[in-house]
Amino acid sequence: MIRAISFVFNEHKENLYRIWQLGKYHMQKQTIRTSLGIGWIFIHDLIYFAVFTIFRYLMAGSAQVEGMNFIVFLITGLVPWFFMSEVINNGSNAIKMNQAIISSIKFPITVIPTIEVMAIFLKRLFTLLVAFGISIGFGYLSSFRPLLFLYYFFSMLILMILFNLIISAFVAISDDFNQLYLSIVRVIFFSMPIIWSFETITGLPWAIYILKLNPMVYIISGFRDAFVLGNAPDLQYTVYFWVLCLIMFAAGSMIQYRLRKYYSDFI
């Protein structure tokens, strides 16, 4: 186990330049044929925000949620979700879509999932701008906590790198897993307090407890704290989050360390 962990860690450490550079290239891959390029991301985001806002409005009116304007509540939840959902949906194909590299060039395989996470994060930076713009528009500038925001953004990046380390391996070797996984993802979205609030189920404390085991909930509520509420991270929950990250790192390293030898033969 120690050997796997230190192998994956070192491969990342030695290839930071490659992760950064190739992340930049892969960021453009999807939009390079278009006239607007990365501007399309911006348009996607605006449309999504608008649709969700209308949806939430029709569902629950314009009442405040957790003391926030409901649009700001939505957006502060959707922003981290946009980052994470793209890693979940597209990033998880990392090994598969870079098969040409794996099977013909010597390459540090365990950093491939990280490169895709990097690409998605760079591409999605526009989403943050939209969120900033809207929150400021609603007069929430003074409540923005930059340090808290940086902390949660960094935590989200780490969580997604570790998540993708594990998932991309499974997706690469098993199409069955891929199908199962994609259907579960839909459920996860609705289980998180993105378009609804835990306030609505305060009568079910055990349900909240279980839903909070999902580390993505830590990130989403953290973003709301950073943008609007200003609460410091809950100690117990923070410890849980980072312990889980360590476990994921160990598990992901072992899986990738073992499987990397088979990718070029089997995929």
Binding site: L22, Y25, K29, A100, S103, S104, I105
Partner: peptide
């Protein structure tokens, strides 16, 4: 390796971009 020469190239990048791209895959610096 002179095996599979055009592997790693990306069809939508220009020749120049592809040289930089594949060069970086191979571990070269800008």
């Amino acid at each position: 390796s002179l095996i599979n020469l055009s592997a790693g190239f990306f069809p939508d990048y220009t020749g120049r971009q592809n040289i930089y791209y594949k060069g970086k895959i191979m571990g070269m610096k800008e």
